[in-house]
Design a binder for these strands. Structure first.
Length: 770
DNA sequence: CAGTGAGCGAGCTTCCGCTTGACTT
């Protein structure tokens, strides 16, 4: 029996440390927090100085039992939870729940998992820091107060099952405000003029000596742009000046949770949840260090391993050891940056996703320890006789690639205006140039970009809101509540006017581009906007962008022993709670109702609002004899932006299309999109091909027959009570509304009723066991 | 699975931050 017990938070960490410590130590894990505020009620006794009511949740009972057993078999217990506010609280909860004497409990911390660091920690144990614990309790209680007092107000005043919180509500606010900026944005057009020039030495056969330049100003109108092209037609072009400037580029720091999520989104197209789950597998396999971190720090060991690897692979001149300072607000730095555990492993075995994410982490880590790239930037100014406007060509030459050999960070620039930095042909001041072409292209200003999951995480981190362990869950929560959706939008076609000057002639042409095309972006929905407005009216303090940052200062004061946590909560609550009471006194429900106008034929009022099952348009006020008429909004429409015309158009569905086999065909739009209905059955319309407003009888019949045909193939055998069917996951038995899997090695076609009954019984008893 | 929007009332929903598994139609 080992006499020393070490408790850490993560089981993967426990396994690693156990190997390092040897047989005198056994290492177990708490799997994070083991206690939390009571779930049944508020869990806080407000009248008694905000005393928390803690309990071990059901899913943690087993862990706690195992920990108790391990403690009883040990002489000495070392609590090695993370060195941050939450970690300190975990240490305290452990000592209380496990009945350890706080005076004697040995609290140790280490930031890297090496024998040296851990032995060092064991030599210097301390006690649990109650000030830090109290800062955590204040944080925990405040979040509970905010979430559990505001959410019920939403249930009463807006809709059931909604939620509000210090973090999620700010995330929604960011999205709503950005959406409104985009809605209110008016694109302006101007003309950008670019030119390609030949030098005297230019080889007519190749394009190697072409100089690509841009005019120094944008032209506000087509007329001005054309006038400039006219000038260019007759102009003499001359190199007015050349400047060559040396410069350097430095690598980005190693990954934190948030930067990993951003880069994996941009370079690999992973959602933030996907990134975290792949990283979790890499971590558990010992391939990378911990993936929930806000630190860019690398351990000494990592620095030396990276150095060795870089020298071996690229040579000494490529190495530059760097320590990065974490600049993120509120960072607690309990862990290292995310890095490969063994930097000499360039590749790993695993799934394609694991390989790609590992590759990204490896490159970023190695690059962060490499030399700056040395570049040379050349700028050439070109005069055009007869005009004040000059052309400028810029080129960049990499003199020494340094870290660029391994990794370059991507940007969020999605307008496709990627500046191609190319080599510039050698020219001298005074050289004459000849245009090959001069092109005036219409450019539209673009609204601020919509957030995607990763850029929202970055913004939250910038505001100091949320933690590495909660970024992905927060993004999921705001989608699960229906506040926002992640989706693609095709955008709208837009004509771009172009004029090209070539060989002394100016020719107009045009191009179409897709404006506002979006991929995997976060769009606020009506309910998100309504809740946001409700919170802004009633709880502006909570969704203020500085709220969390200001709180953090107070938590720091508590941690430093300068402020009592009860007093801090008292102060907050005495201001906050009255706003809750106040919000409940307002009689009306918040529905986001807008009156669009009156019906052109009947004069009845047309309005939009949030109904029980989603946003609806209403004709008539429902106060007279006549019942109002209702129609649901389309998924892409918002209460805030729908027009009277669009609203009225919604009433043209459901529409009678025609008749087939003596029964009528009706077209409409339901929860699962456009459909036609015939004889009580529904048939989906094909996306991008059919339109419920215009679909013909012939097309509808075609769809019905197609479906009947494919349904026939679905049935393997029909045994009356049971049906054997082909499904997405292979053959299965359907009985009433329940489906059952067919065991491997059975021929689905030969099953009898008795066989089916047996299979169903077996799968039912299996379920019970679980 | 694809419509529903009268009103009442019982019972339910909800926060943030630590950690992993259990899911299969």
């Amino acid at each position: 029996m080992s006499s020393n017990l070490v408790i850490v938070e993560s089981p993967a960490k426990a396994r690693t440390i156990e190997k390092l410590l040897g047989k005198d130590f056994s290492v177990v894990s708490s799997f994070g927090h083991i206690r939390d505020l009571s779930k049944k009620n508020l869990g806080i006794n407000i009248d008694k100085g905000f005393t928390p009511e803690y309990e071990v949740p059901a899913e943690k009972q087993k862990v706690v039992a195992a920990l108790k057993k391990a403690v009883s078999g040990s002489n000495e217990v070392w609590i090695a939870s993370d060195e941050d506010r939450e970690g300190e609280a975990i240490a305290w909860h452990l000592s209380v729940v496990l009945g350890l004497d706080p005076e004697k409990t040995k609290r140790i911390v280490f930031h890297e998992i090496t024998k040296e660091a851990i032995s060092n920690a064991i030599m210097h144990p301390r006690q649990v820091d109650m000030n830090l614990v109290n800062a955590q309790q204040a944080r925990r209680i405040l979040d509970r107060l905010v979430g559990f007092e505001i959410s019920p107000v939403l249930w009463k005043k807006v809709q059931p099952s909604l939620s509000a919180g210090r973090v999620q509500s700010v995330a929604v606010r960011l999205l709503v405000e950005r959406e409104r900026e985009i809605i209110g944005f008016k694109p302006e057009s101007s003309f950008r003029v670019t030119a390609s020039f030949r030098t005297q030495q230019s080889n007519q056969e190749t394009n190697l000596d072409i100089i690509n330049a841009e005019a120094g100003k944008r032209f506000r109108s087509e007329k001005e742009a054309l006038a400039f092209l006219e000038v260019c037609k007759e102009a003499i072009f001359q190199v007015a000046g050349i400047s060559v400037k040396p410069g350097t580029k430095s690598p980005a720091p190693p990954f934190t949770t948030s930067t990993l999520q951003q880069e994996a989104y941009r370079k690999l197209g992973f959602s933030v949840a996907q990134t975290m789950s792949v990283a979790q597998r890499l971590y558990e396999a010992g391939k990378i260090t911990y993936m929930r971190t806000d630190s860019t720090n690398l351990s000494k060991l990592a620095l030396s391993l990276a150095h060795k690897e870089i020298v071996k692979e690229f040579g000494e001149e490529y190495s530059k050891t760097r320590q990065y300072k974490t600049r993120t607000r509120g960072a607690q730095e309990a862990h290292e940056a995310i890095r490969p555990t063994y930097p000499d492993k360039h590749e790993i075995t695993g799934t394609q996703q694991e390989k790609r994410l590992y590759d990204l982490i490896w490159k970023r880590t190695i690059a962060s320890q490499m030399a700056d790239a040395v570049i040379e930037k050349t700028t050439i100014n070109i005069d055009a006789s007869g005009s004040e406007t000059k052309f400028t060509a810029t080129g960049e030459v990499i003199k020494f690639d340094g870290f660029l050999r391994v990794y370059s960070e991507s940007t969020d620039n999605e307008n496709g205006s990627e500046d191609e930095k190319t080599l510039i042909p050698r020219v001298s001041q005074g050289d004459e140039l000849w245009y090959e072409s001069v092109t005036a292209t219409e450019k539209f200003t673009t609204p601020p970009p919509r957030y995607n999951e990763a850029s929202l995480v970055r913004k939250l981190e910038e505001l100091g809101i949320g933690r590495p362990s909660t970024y992905a869950p927060t993004i999921s929560t705001i989608q699960n509540r229906g506040y926002v959706v992640r989706e693609d939008r095709p955008g709208e076609k837009r004509e771009i006017r172009i004029h090209v000057l070539q060989k002394g002639r100016i020719k107009p042409s045009a191009k179409t581009e897709m404006a506002g095309r979006e991929k995997a972006k976060l769009f606020p929905k009506d309910i998100g906007m309504i809740v946001n407005d409700f919170l802004a009216e009633n709880f502006s303090e909570i969704i203020d962008y500085h709220f969390t940052a200001d709180l953090e200062k107070k938590f720091d004061d508590i941690a430093d022993g300068k402020l009592s946590w009860n007093r801090m909560l008292e102060e907050f609550y005495s201001g906050f709670h009255p706003t809750v009471e106040e919000s409940l006194t307002k009689r009306e429900k918040k529905t986001g109702e807008r009156i669009l106008g009156s019906h052109p034929e009947t004069g009845e009022q047309v309005s939009v609002k949030m109904g029980r099952y989603g946003p609806i348009v209403q004709i008539g006020e429902g106060n007279g004899e006549k019942k109002p008429k209702y129609a649901s909004l389309l998924k892409t429409q918002l209460i805030e932006t729908i027009t009277l015309e669009e609203a009225l158009h919604l009433f043209s569905l459901p529409r009678q299309v025609g008749e087939f086999r003596g029964k009528e065909i009706v077209a409409g739009i339901g929860r699962f999109g456009p459909f036609v209905r015939h004889d009580g059955k529904f048939y989906s319309l094909k996306k991008g091909i059919d339109d419920p407003y215009t679909v013909t009888t012939e097309r509808a019949i075609e769809l019905i027959c197609e479906k009947e045909e494919s349904d026939k193939q679905k049935v393997i055998s029909d045994l009356g009570e049971y049906k054997v069917l082909n499904g997405r996951y292979g053959p299965y038995i359907s009985s009433g509304k329940e489906n059952y899997k067919i065991p491997k090695g059975t021929d689905p076609a030969s099953l009898t009723s008795a066989d089916c009954e047996r299979i169903i019984e077996e799968s039912k008893s299996k379920k019970k066991k679980k």
